[in-house]
Design a protein around this nucleic acid. Structure first.
Lengths: 205, 205
DNA sequence: CCTGATCCTGACTCTTTGGTCAATAATTGG
DNA sequence: CCAATTATTGACCAAAGAGTCAGGATCAGG
Protein backbone atom coordinates (compact mmCIF):
# COMPACT_ATOMS: atom_id res chain seq x y z
CA UNK A 1 0.00 0.00 0.00
CA UNK A 2 1.38 3.42 -0.91
CA UNK A 3 4.92 4.68 -1.38
CA UNK A 4 6.58 3.03 1.59
CA UNK A 5 9.94 4.49 2.49
CA UNK A 6 11.05 1.75 4.84
CA UNK A 7 14.64 2.03 3.63
CA UNK A 8 16.45 3.68 6.52
CA UNK A 9 14.18 2.37 9.25
CA UNK A 10 15.20 0.07 12.08
CA UNK A 11 13.14 -2.95 13.00
CA UNK A 12 11.70 -1.12 16.00
CA UNK A 13 10.80 1.91 13.92
CA UNK A 14 9.01 -0.18 11.39
CA UNK A 15 7.08 -2.06 14.03
CA UNK A 16 6.09 0.99 16.07
CA UNK A 17 5.12 3.12 13.11
CA UNK A 18 2.93 0.24 12.02
CA UNK A 19 1.36 -0.06 15.48
CA UNK A 20 0.66 3.66 15.55
CA UNK A 21 -0.92 3.76 12.12
CA UNK A 22 -3.01 0.72 12.94
CA UNK A 23 -4.24 2.27 16.18
CA UNK A 24 -4.80 5.62 14.53
CA UNK A 25 -6.91 4.01 11.83
CA UNK A 26 -9.21 2.60 14.49
CA UNK A 27 -9.44 5.84 16.39
CA UNK A 28 -9.78 8.22 13.44
CA UNK A 29 -12.38 6.02 11.76
CA UNK A 30 -14.46 5.97 14.92
CA UNK A 31 -14.19 9.60 15.98
CA UNK A 32 -12.97 11.60 13.02
CA UNK A 33 -9.89 13.79 13.08
CA UNK A 34 -11.08 16.33 15.61
CA UNK A 35 -12.67 13.73 17.84
CA UNK A 36 -9.53 11.61 18.05
CA UNK A 37 -6.86 12.22 20.67
CA UNK A 38 -3.23 11.24 20.59
CA UNK A 39 -3.75 9.56 23.93
CA UNK A 40 -6.39 7.26 22.44
CA UNK A 41 -4.13 6.43 19.54
CA UNK A 42 -1.27 5.72 21.92
CA UNK A 43 -3.52 3.51 24.02
CA UNK A 44 -4.70 1.60 20.98
CA UNK A 45 -1.12 1.12 19.87
CA UNK A 46 0.10 0.14 23.32
CA UNK A 47 2.58 3.02 23.45
CA UNK A 48 2.89 6.19 25.50
CA UNK A 49 1.84 9.53 24.06
CA UNK A 50 5.33 11.01 23.94
CA UNK A 51 6.52 7.87 22.24
CA UNK A 52 3.89 8.25 19.55
CA UNK A 53 5.15 11.77 19.00
CA UNK A 54 8.66 10.41 18.78
CA UNK A 55 7.66 8.61 15.59
CA UNK A 56 5.31 11.18 14.12
CA UNK A 57 5.77 14.91 14.47
CA UNK A 58 2.07 15.63 15.04
CA UNK A 59 -1.42 14.24 15.04
CA UNK A 60 -1.85 15.84 11.66
CA UNK A 61 1.10 13.96 10.26
CA UNK A 62 -0.28 10.64 11.44
CA UNK A 63 -3.55 11.44 9.76
CA UNK A 64 -2.01 12.56 6.52
CA UNK A 65 0.26 9.53 6.40
CA UNK A 66 -2.70 7.24 6.90
CA UNK A 67 -4.75 8.84 4.16
CA UNK A 68 -2.03 8.85 1.54
CA UNK A 69 -0.86 5.35 2.45
CA UNK A 70 -4.33 3.86 2.20
CA UNK A 71 -5.52 5.72 -0.86
CA UNK A 72 -3.76 3.44 -3.35
CA UNK A 73 -5.23 0.35 -1.79
CA UNK A 74 -8.60 1.99 -1.74
CA UNK A 75 -8.57 2.91 -5.42
CA UNK A 76 -6.88 -0.24 -6.70
CA UNK A 77 -10.04 -2.09 -7.77
CA UNK A 78 -10.94 0.71 -10.16
CA UNK A 79 -7.64 0.31 -12.00
CA UNK A 80 -8.21 -3.41 -12.19
CA UNK A 81 -11.03 -3.09 -14.66
CA UNK A 82 -9.81 -4.99 -17.70
CA UNK A 83 -10.54 -3.41 -21.08
CA UNK A 84 -10.20 -6.87 -22.62
CA UNK A 85 -12.68 -8.47 -20.26
CA UNK A 86 -16.39 -9.09 -20.73
CA UNK A 87 -17.89 -5.64 -20.06
CA UNK A 88 -20.84 -6.51 -17.84
CA UNK A 89 -18.83 -9.01 -15.86
CA UNK A 90 -16.02 -6.51 -15.36
CA UNK A 91 -18.42 -4.01 -13.84
CA UNK A 92 -20.08 -6.62 -11.66
CA UNK A 93 -16.66 -7.73 -10.48
CA UNK A 94 -15.78 -4.18 -9.60
CA UNK A 95 -19.00 -3.79 -7.62
CA UNK A 96 -18.31 -7.04 -5.78
CA UNK A 97 -14.74 -6.01 -5.06
CA UNK A 98 -15.85 -2.66 -3.64
CA UNK A 99 -18.52 -4.28 -1.52
CA UNK A 100 -16.02 -6.80 -0.22
CA UNK A 101 -13.75 -3.94 0.75
CA UNK A 102 -16.58 -2.23 2.64
CA UNK A 103 -17.08 -5.40 4.60
CA UNK A 104 -13.44 -6.13 5.16
CA UNK A 105 -12.09 -2.62 5.60
CA UNK A 106 -14.87 -0.53 7.10
CA UNK A 107 -12.37 1.58 8.99
CA UNK A 108 -10.74 2.72 5.80
CA UNK A 109 -14.10 3.52 4.30
CA UNK A 110 -15.07 5.64 7.29
CA UNK A 111 -11.70 7.34 7.37
CA UNK A 112 -12.20 8.60 3.84
CA UNK A 113 -15.86 9.38 4.48
CA UNK A 114 -14.94 11.65 7.37
CA UNK A 115 -12.27 13.33 5.32
CA UNK A 116 -14.51 14.06 2.34
CA UNK A 117 -17.32 15.24 4.61
CA UNK A 118 -14.95 17.76 6.15
CA UNK A 119 -14.21 19.10 2.72
CA UNK A 120 -11.09 16.97 2.29
CA UNK A 121 -8.49 19.50 3.47
CA UNK A 122 -5.72 16.93 3.03
CA UNK A 123 -6.94 15.43 -0.21
CA UNK A 124 -7.87 18.39 -2.38
CA UNK A 125 -4.91 18.09 -4.73
CA UNK A 126 -5.33 14.34 -4.90
CA UNK A 127 -9.04 14.53 -5.64
CA UNK A 128 -8.56 16.73 -8.65
CA UNK A 129 -5.36 14.93 -9.65
CA UNK A 130 -4.71 11.24 -9.20
CA UNK A 131 -8.27 10.29 -8.31
CA UNK A 132 -9.70 12.20 -11.20
CA UNK A 133 -7.17 10.61 -13.55
CA UNK A 134 -7.97 7.11 -12.35
CA UNK A 135 -11.65 7.76 -12.82
CA UNK A 136 -11.12 9.15 -16.30
CA UNK A 137 -9.24 6.01 -17.33
CA UNK A 138 -12.13 3.88 -16.18
CA UNK A 139 -14.61 6.21 -17.83
CA UNK A 140 -12.77 5.84 -21.12
CA UNK A 141 -13.04 2.07 -20.94
CA UNK A 142 -16.71 2.21 -20.07
CA UNK A 143 -17.43 4.66 -22.85
CA UNK A 144 -15.72 2.41 -25.32
CA UNK A 145 -17.85 -0.52 -24.26
CA UNK A 146 -20.98 1.55 -24.46
CA UNK A 147 -20.21 2.93 -27.88
CA UNK A 148 -19.63 -0.54 -29.22
CA UNK A 149 -22.96 -1.59 -27.81
CA UNK A 150 -21.59 -4.16 -25.40
CA UNK A 151 -22.88 -2.22 -22.42
CA UNK A 152 -26.02 -0.14 -22.17
CA UNK A 153 -25.46 3.56 -22.46
CA UNK A 154 -25.46 5.47 -19.16
CA UNK A 155 -23.41 8.39 -17.91
CA UNK A 156 -20.18 6.66 -16.84
CA UNK A 157 -19.13 9.13 -14.11
CA UNK A 158 -22.43 8.77 -12.37
CA UNK A 159 -22.28 5.03 -12.82
CA UNK A 160 -19.05 5.06 -10.86
CA UNK A 161 -20.48 7.42 -8.24
CA UNK A 162 -23.41 5.09 -7.81
CA UNK A 163 -21.12 2.14 -7.20
CA UNK A 164 -19.14 4.07 -4.63
CA UNK A 165 -22.25 5.34 -2.91
CA UNK A 166 -24.00 2.00 -2.72
CA UNK A 167 -21.08 -0.07 -1.59
CA UNK A 168 -19.56 2.34 0.89
CA UNK A 169 -22.98 3.02 2.35
CA UNK A 170 -22.88 -0.39 3.99
CA UNK A 171 -19.64 0.45 5.79
CA UNK A 172 -20.19 4.12 6.57
CA UNK A 173 -23.80 3.86 7.68
CA UNK A 174 -23.57 0.38 9.11
CA UNK A 175 -25.28 1.25 12.40
CA UNK A 176 -28.25 2.63 10.50
CA UNK A 177 -28.42 -0.33 8.16
CA UNK A 178 -28.34 -2.77 11.05
CA UNK A 179 -30.85 -0.80 13.10
CA UNK A 180 -33.32 -0.72 10.22
CA UNK A 181 -32.86 -4.36 9.22
CA UNK A 182 -32.97 -5.67 12.78
CA UNK A 183 -31.45 -8.92 13.93
CA UNK A 184 -30.91 -11.94 11.74
CA UNK A 185 -29.67 -10.22 8.62
CA UNK A 186 -26.37 -10.28 6.82
CA UNK A 187 -26.40 -6.83 5.22
CA UNK A 188 -23.41 -7.46 3.04
CA UNK A 189 -24.47 -10.69 1.41
CA UNK A 190 -27.98 -9.33 0.87
CA UNK A 191 -26.44 -6.23 -0.65
CA UNK A 192 -24.29 -8.33 -2.94
CA UNK A 193 -27.35 -10.01 -4.36
CA UNK A 194 -29.28 -6.76 -4.66
CA UNK A 195 -26.45 -4.90 -6.37
CA UNK A 196 -25.69 -7.73 -8.74
CA UNK A 197 -29.28 -7.69 -9.90
CA UNK A 198 -29.36 -3.90 -10.07
CA UNK A 199 -26.28 -3.44 -12.23
CA UNK A 200 -27.15 -6.42 -14.41
CA UNK A 201 -30.49 -4.80 -15.17
CA UNK A 202 -29.03 -1.37 -15.64
CA UNK A 203 -26.20 -2.31 -17.92
CA UNK A 204 -27.35 -5.29 -19.96
CA UNK A 205 -27.56 -3.96 -23.48
CA UNK B 1 -40.32 20.58 11.29
CA UNK B 2 -40.43 18.53 14.51
CA UNK B 3 -42.39 18.93 17.73
CA UNK B 4 -41.95 22.63 18.36
CA UNK B 5 -42.75 23.69 21.91
CA UNK B 6 -42.91 27.41 21.31
CA UNK B 7 -45.71 27.81 23.81
CA UNK B 8 -44.11 29.65 26.71
CA UNK B 9 -41.44 31.42 24.67
CA UNK B 10 -41.04 35.16 24.27
CA UNK B 11 -40.47 36.72 20.88
CA UNK B 12 -36.77 37.17 21.65
CA UNK B 13 -36.41 33.61 22.80
CA UNK B 14 -37.98 32.28 19.64
CA UNK B 15 -35.80 34.44 17.44
CA UNK B 16 -32.54 33.70 19.23
CA UNK B 17 -33.10 29.98 19.54
CA UNK B 18 -33.78 29.98 15.82
CA UNK B 19 -30.59 31.95 15.10
CA UNK B 20 -28.57 29.57 17.23
CA UNK B 21 -29.96 26.43 15.62
CA UNK B 22 -29.43 27.92 12.18
CA UNK B 23 -25.82 28.79 12.97
CA UNK B 24 -25.23 25.47 14.65
CA UNK B 25 -26.50 23.63 11.60
CA UNK B 26 -23.90 25.37 9.47
CA UNK B 27 -21.09 24.73 11.92
CA UNK B 28 -21.94 21.14 12.83
CA UNK B 29 -22.48 20.16 9.22
CA UNK B 30 -19.10 21.55 8.28
CA UNK B 31 -17.01 20.30 11.18
CA UNK B 32 -18.94 17.56 12.93
CA UNK B 33 -19.82 17.62 16.59
CA UNK B 34 -16.31 17.41 17.99
CA UNK B 35 -14.90 19.83 15.44
CA UNK B 36 -17.48 22.51 16.16
CA UNK B 37 -17.00 25.10 18.89
CA UNK B 38 -19.63 27.11 20.71
CA UNK B 39 -17.72 30.22 19.71
CA UNK B 40 -18.14 29.42 16.04
CA UNK B 41 -21.83 28.79 16.53
CA UNK B 42 -22.18 32.05 18.41
CA UNK B 43 -20.31 33.87 15.67
CA UNK B 44 -22.52 32.37 12.99
CA UNK B 45 -25.60 33.33 14.95
CA UNK B 46 -24.36 36.84 15.70
CA UNK B 47 -24.52 36.29 19.45
CA UNK B 48 -21.97 36.04 22.24
CA UNK B 49 -20.94 32.66 23.60
CA UNK B 50 -22.47 33.15 27.05
CA UNK B 51 -25.64 34.25 25.39
CA UNK B 52 -25.80 31.07 23.38
CA UNK B 53 -25.44 29.15 26.62
CA UNK B 54 -28.24 31.21 28.09
CA UNK B 55 -30.60 29.62 25.56
CA UNK B 56 -29.15 26.12 25.48
CA UNK B 57 -27.64 24.40 28.48
CA UNK B 58 -24.76 22.87 26.52
CA UNK B 59 -23.26 22.23 23.13
CA UNK B 60 -24.66 18.75 23.37
CA UNK B 61 -28.17 20.05 23.85
CA UNK B 62 -27.94 22.25 20.78
CA UNK B 63 -26.82 19.26 18.79
CA UNK B 64 -29.51 16.95 20.10
CA UNK B 65 -32.20 19.56 19.52
CA UNK B 66 -31.04 20.03 15.95
CA UNK B 67 -31.06 16.32 15.18
CA UNK B 68 -34.46 15.60 16.63
CA UNK B 69 -35.99 18.74 15.15
CA UNK B 70 -34.74 18.00 11.65
CA UNK B 71 -35.37 14.28 11.62
CA UNK B 72 -39.07 14.58 10.80
CA UNK B 73 -38.44 16.84 7.87
CA UNK B 74 -35.71 14.54 6.70
CA UNK B 75 -37.88 11.43 6.74
CA UNK B 76 -41.07 13.05 5.49
CA UNK B 77 -40.71 12.06 1.82
CA UNK B 78 -40.66 8.39 2.75
CA UNK B 79 -44.05 8.70 4.44
CA UNK B 80 -45.40 10.48 1.40
CA UNK B 81 -45.31 7.38 -0.74
CA UNK B 82 -48.91 6.84 -1.74
CA UNK B 83 -50.16 3.24 -1.70
CA UNK B 84 -52.84 4.28 -4.17
CA UNK B 85 -50.41 5.83 -6.61
CA UNK B 86 -48.81 4.34 -9.68
CA UNK B 87 -46.02 2.20 -8.19
CA UNK B 88 -43.09 3.04 -10.45
CA UNK B 89 -43.97 6.71 -10.49
CA UNK B 90 -44.24 6.79 -6.71
CA UNK B 91 -40.72 5.40 -6.35
CA UNK B 92 -39.34 7.76 -8.97
CA UNK B 93 -41.01 10.65 -7.19
CA UNK B 94 -39.43 9.58 -3.94
CA UNK B 95 -36.00 9.42 -5.55
CA UNK B 96 -36.49 12.86 -7.06
CA UNK B 97 -37.67 14.26 -3.73
CA UNK B 98 -34.65 12.87 -1.90
CA UNK B 99 -32.28 14.20 -4.53
CA UNK B 100 -33.91 17.60 -4.35
CA UNK B 101 -33.40 17.58 -0.61
CA UNK B 102 -29.73 16.76 -1.03
CA UNK B 103 -29.36 19.75 -3.27
CA UNK B 104 -31.45 22.09 -1.19
CA UNK B 105 -30.48 20.93 2.29
CA UNK B 106 -26.93 19.63 2.09
CA UNK B 107 -26.24 20.79 5.63
CA UNK B 108 -28.94 18.55 7.02
CA UNK B 109 -27.64 15.64 4.99
CA UNK B 110 -24.12 16.11 6.33
CA UNK B 111 -25.35 16.59 9.87
CA UNK B 112 -26.96 13.17 9.80
CA UNK B 113 -24.04 11.64 7.94
CA UNK B 114 -21.63 12.76 10.65
CA UNK B 115 -23.92 11.45 13.34
CA UNK B 116 -24.36 8.01 11.79
CA UNK B 117 -20.63 7.76 11.06
CA UNK B 118 -19.90 8.37 14.73
CA UNK B 119 -22.17 5.48 15.63
CA UNK B 120 -25.21 7.71 16.20
CA UNK B 121 -24.88 8.15 19.98
CA UNK B 122 -27.89 10.48 20.01
CA UNK B 123 -30.02 8.56 17.57
CA UNK B 124 -29.76 4.95 18.64
CA UNK B 125 -33.26 4.68 20.09
CA UNK B 126 -34.69 6.56 17.13
CA UNK B 127 -32.91 4.40 14.58
CA UNK B 128 -34.37 1.19 15.95
CA UNK B 129 -37.70 2.86 16.71
CA UNK B 130 -39.32 5.57 14.64
CA UNK B 131 -36.98 5.27 11.67
CA UNK B 132 -37.34 1.53 11.53
CA UNK B 133 -41.12 1.85 11.76
CA UNK B 134 -41.28 4.39 8.95
CA UNK B 135 -39.15 2.15 6.79
CA UNK B 136 -41.29 -0.87 7.54
CA UNK B 137 -44.41 1.00 6.45
CA UNK B 138 -42.80 1.84 3.15
CA UNK B 139 -41.49 -1.70 2.79
CA UNK B 140 -45.02 -3.05 3.25
CA UNK B 141 -46.30 -0.85 0.43
CA UNK B 142 -43.45 -1.84 -1.84
CA UNK B 143 -43.95 -5.52 -1.08
CA UNK B 144 -47.59 -5.25 -1.90
CA UNK B 145 -46.82 -3.68 -5.25
CA UNK B 146 -44.25 -6.33 -5.98
CA UNK B 147 -46.51 -9.22 -5.07
CA UNK B 148 -49.21 -7.93 -7.33
CA UNK B 149 -46.68 -7.71 -10.14
CA UNK B 150 -46.90 -3.94 -10.58
CA UNK B 151 -43.27 -3.51 -9.60
CA UNK B 152 -40.38 -5.82 -10.28
CA UNK B 153 -39.37 -7.94 -7.32
CA UNK B 154 -36.30 -6.71 -5.44
CA UNK B 155 -35.44 -6.66 -1.75
CA UNK B 156 -37.32 -3.57 -0.55
CA UNK B 157 -35.04 -2.64 2.36
CA UNK B 158 -32.03 -2.59 0.13
CA UNK B 159 -33.98 -0.69 -2.48
CA UNK B 160 -34.54 2.01 0.11
CA UNK B 161 -30.90 1.92 1.22
CA UNK B 162 -29.83 2.33 -2.37
CA UNK B 163 -31.98 5.42 -2.77
CA UNK B 164 -30.59 6.94 0.39
CA UNK B 165 -27.03 6.11 -0.57
CA UNK B 166 -27.24 7.46 -4.09
CA UNK B 167 -29.06 10.67 -3.35
CA UNK B 168 -27.25 11.65 -0.17
CA UNK B 169 -23.94 10.86 -1.81
CA UNK B 170 -24.27 14.02 -3.85
CA UNK B 171 -24.60 16.14 -0.72
CA UNK B 172 -22.22 14.34 1.62
CA UNK B 173 -19.42 13.80 -0.88
CA UNK B 174 -20.02 16.90 -2.93
CA UNK B 175 -16.37 18.00 -2.95
CA UNK B 176 -15.34 14.64 -4.35
CA UNK B 177 -18.09 14.63 -6.95
CA UNK B 178 -17.16 18.10 -8.11
CA UNK B 179 -13.44 17.35 -8.12
CA UNK B 180 -13.93 14.26 -10.25
CA UNK B 181 -16.39 15.85 -12.66
CA UNK B 182 -14.43 19.06 -13.05
CA UNK B 183 -15.90 22.37 -14.10
CA UNK B 184 -18.96 22.78 -16.23
CA UNK B 185 -21.16 20.13 -14.67
CA UNK B 186 -24.37 20.26 -12.74
CA UNK B 187 -24.01 17.15 -10.61
CA UNK B 188 -27.56 17.20 -9.36
CA UNK B 189 -29.40 17.48 -12.63
CA UNK B 190 -27.13 14.86 -14.20
CA UNK B 191 -27.79 12.63 -11.21
CA UNK B 192 -31.52 13.13 -11.59
CA UNK B 193 -31.38 11.83 -15.13
CA UNK B 194 -29.10 8.94 -14.22
CA UNK B 195 -31.19 7.84 -11.25
CA UNK B 196 -34.44 8.13 -13.11
CA UNK B 197 -33.11 5.80 -15.75
CA UNK B 198 -31.60 3.45 -13.17
CA UNK B 199 -34.72 2.95 -11.10
CA UNK B 200 -36.93 2.77 -14.15
CA UNK B 201 -34.82 -0.07 -15.44
CA UNK B 202 -34.57 -1.79 -12.10
CA UNK B 203 -38.23 -1.66 -11.21
CA UNK B 204 -40.19 -1.86 -14.46
CA UNK B 205 -41.96 -5.19 -14.23
C1' DC C 1 31.59 -5.30 27.59
C1' DC C 2 31.84 -0.59 26.10
C1' DT C 3 30.12 3.28 23.61
C1' DG C 4 27.34 5.83 20.70
C1' DA C 5 22.93 5.84 18.76
C1' DT C 6 18.30 4.81 19.33
C1' DC C 7 14.27 4.47 22.15
C1' DC C 8 11.19 5.74 25.89
C1' DT C 9 8.85 8.41 29.57
C1' DG C 10 7.42 11.52 33.62
C1' DA C 11 6.66 15.86 34.20
C1' DC C 12 5.88 19.89 32.15
C1' DT C 13 3.93 24.01 29.16
C1' DC C 14 0.63 26.33 26.47
C1' DT C 15 -3.60 26.73 24.03
C1' DT C 16 -8.24 25.74 23.25
C1' DT C 17 -12.63 25.27 24.74
C1' DG C 18 -16.89 24.09 27.45
C1' DG C 19 -19.12 26.17 30.86
C1' DT C 20 -20.05 29.67 35.09
C1' DC C 21 -21.25 33.95 37.26
C1' DA C 22 -21.88 38.45 38.95
C1' DA C 23 -22.95 42.61 37.19
C1' DT C 24 -25.30 45.42 33.68
C1' DA C 25 -28.75 46.50 30.13
C1' DA C 26 -33.34 45.90 27.91
C1' DT C 27 -37.90 44.90 28.03
C1' DT C 28 -42.38 44.31 29.67
C1' DG C 29 -46.57 44.65 32.19
C1' DG C 30 -48.99 47.23 35.50
C1' DC D 1 -42.71 55.61 34.66
C1' DC D 2 -41.48 52.12 37.73
C1' DA D 3 -40.47 47.47 39.44
C1' DA D 4 -39.74 42.84 38.04
C1' DT D 5 -38.55 39.92 34.76
C1' DT D 6 -35.74 38.79 30.89
C1' DA D 7 -31.60 39.34 28.11
C1' DT D 8 -26.61 40.14 27.58
C1' DT D 9 -21.78 40.14 28.46
C1' DG D 10 -16.79 40.54 30.27
C1' DA D 11 -14.09 38.12 33.05
C1' DC D 12 -13.23 34.06 34.82
C1' DC D 13 -12.43 28.81 35.87
C1' DA D 14 -11.26 24.02 35.06
C1' DA D 15 -10.43 20.36 32.03
C1' DA D 16 -8.66 18.48 27.98
C1' DG D 17 -5.46 17.89 24.86
C1' DA D 18 -1.36 18.95 21.60
C1' DG D 19 3.21 19.12 21.85
C1' DT D 20 8.16 19.61 24.49
C1' DC D 21 12.18 18.14 26.88
C1' DA D 22 15.71 16.50 29.92
C1' DG D 23 17.19 12.52 31.42
C1' DG D 24 17.16 7.52 31.85
C1' DA D 25 16.81 2.81 29.60
C1' DT D 26 17.87 -0.16 25.82
C1' DC D 27 20.20 -1.84 21.96
C1' DA D 28 23.54 -2.60 18.08
C1' DG D 29 28.00 -2.85 16.45
C1' DG D 30 32.84 -3.17 17.37
Amino acid sequence: MGEQDDSGLTRIQRRNRELILEGALTVFSNSGFRGATIDQIAGEAGLSKPNVLYYFASKDEIHKTLLTTLLDMWLAPLSNIDPEGEPLQEVLDYVAAKLRMSRQYPRESRLFAYEILRGAPHLTEILGGRLRGTVEDAVAILQDWMQSGRLRNVEPHHLIFSIWAMTQHYADFEVQVRAVLGKGHDPFSEAQEFLDDLYRRLLSP
